[in-house]
Computed example of a mutant assay.
Amino acid sequence: MCPPEHFTVEYVINPWMDTSTPVDVELALKQWERLRETLVDLGHTVHVLPPRAGLPDMVFAANGGFVVDGTVYGARFKYPQRAAEAAAHREFYEAQGWTYVAPSEVNEGEGDFAYLPDAYGGTILAGYGFRTEPAAHAQAQDVLGRPAVSLRLVDPRFYHLDTALAALDDRTVTYFPGAFSPASQRVLRQLFPDAVLADEADALAFGLNLVGDGRHVVLNDEASGMAARVAAAGYVPVPVELSELKKGGGSVKCCVAELRH
């Protein structure tokens, strides 16, 4: 995770951003810290990446890479405003001794990649349509040695896969069908017939931008409908307030890069 010390909305690269809406940095920091504390209280180890001035979106740490079994497929951001973030993430991973593979294709890390280790022997779900290029899916597959399933996003409000789909545990997903093309919806139905289906209200509340550990589901507190759905499916919802970071187009999952050993 990376604290939002420099967080602001000074440019527009997704439909949620509005430069005329002020950001309360102090509140953003308090909300971020509460999310960090929540993860620690649930038993997780949280590493903190130092923020850098001039990179206001660095708080969305999930976009800096995609990790499977100790190997990191690095990020290459679509927009120049975020390009320098990739180097900061690379320095972190290499300092920690992770195997880092620099990408040649545009991709935004876990923003457009999800991993389910127990689904079909280990499966990468890979989004495209707005940020990550489809060629990056093949590259991630080669680097990480896991099959990648390409899913086309068609609604610009859900510009990253992690705004429309999430792993609840190692084999179960939740997703909003309307964010995907008809063909991708068919693929998801075939692969995950027991998925927890979300509706548009859940997705617009960033309810799918969540972190699940197999039992707990940490999600935006505005997504009360989504909390009820995951509870009905047998998980324990853990709501957190992230109203300030939502102004940048992100929520819980955007703030968390998962380190899979």
Rank of each mutant, 00 (worst) to 15 (best):
G121C: 08
Y79M: 02
F66P: 03
A135E: 12
V67R: 02
L168D: 04
Q139P: 03
D57M: 00
P147C: 00
H160P: 04
D142Q: 12
D57Q: 03
R171D: 12
L153H: 06
A95W: 04
D112G: 13
I124C: 13
T163F: 10
Y79S: 00
V106Q: 06
A140C: 14
Y159H: 08
G111K: 10
V154R: 13
D69P: 07
A148Q: 09
A53S: 14
Y120H: 12
D142L: 11
E108W: 00
V67G: 02
D69W: 13
L55V: 08
A135L: 15
P156L: 02
A83W: 02
P50Q: 11
D162M: 13
R90P: 05
D57Y: 00
L125R: 02
A53F: 08
R90G: 06
D118L: 06
P56V: 04
Q139S: 12
Y100C: 07
P50D: 13
D162P: 15
Y73E: 04
E85F: 13
D118H: 09
P56S: 08
Q81R: 13
E108I: 01
A87S: 05
Y93M: 00
A138R: 12
G129Q: 01
T123C: 11
Y100L: 13
P103D: 10
L55R: 01
P103V: 04
S104P: 04
A87T: 01
Y100P: 08
A86W: 00
L116Q: 03
A140H: 11
A83G: 00
G122N: 05
D170W: 06
N107S: 14
R52I: 11
A148E: 13
A119E: 10
A119W: 15
G74F: 01
A61F: 08
E94N: 01
T45A: 10
E85A: 13
A61Y: 09
D162F: 15
G64M: 07
H89I: 01
A61L: 05
A166S: 10
E105R: 12
K78Q: 11
S104A: 14
P80W: 01
G129N: 02
Y100G: 09
H137Y: 04
H160G: 08
D169E: 09
G111H: 13
P50Y: 13
Q81K: 12
G74S: 08
S150K: 14
F77C: 01
E85C: 12
G65Y: 04
Y73V: 01
E105P: 02
L168M: 11
L151N: 05
E91N: 06
D155H: 15
G74D: 05
E91T: 04
V149R: 09
P134G: 15
V143L: 07
L165A: 14
R146A: 14
E110K: 07
L161R: 11
A53I: 14
G74M: 05
P51G: 15
S104T: 15
T123N: 07
T123A: 05
G109N: 06
T172F: 09
F130L: 01
Y100E: 11
L161A: 13
A61V: 07
H137L: 06
T45Q: 11
S104L: 12
W98P: 00
L161T: 12
P134N: 14
V154Y: 12
G127F: 05
L144R: 03
V46S: 05
R152V: 08
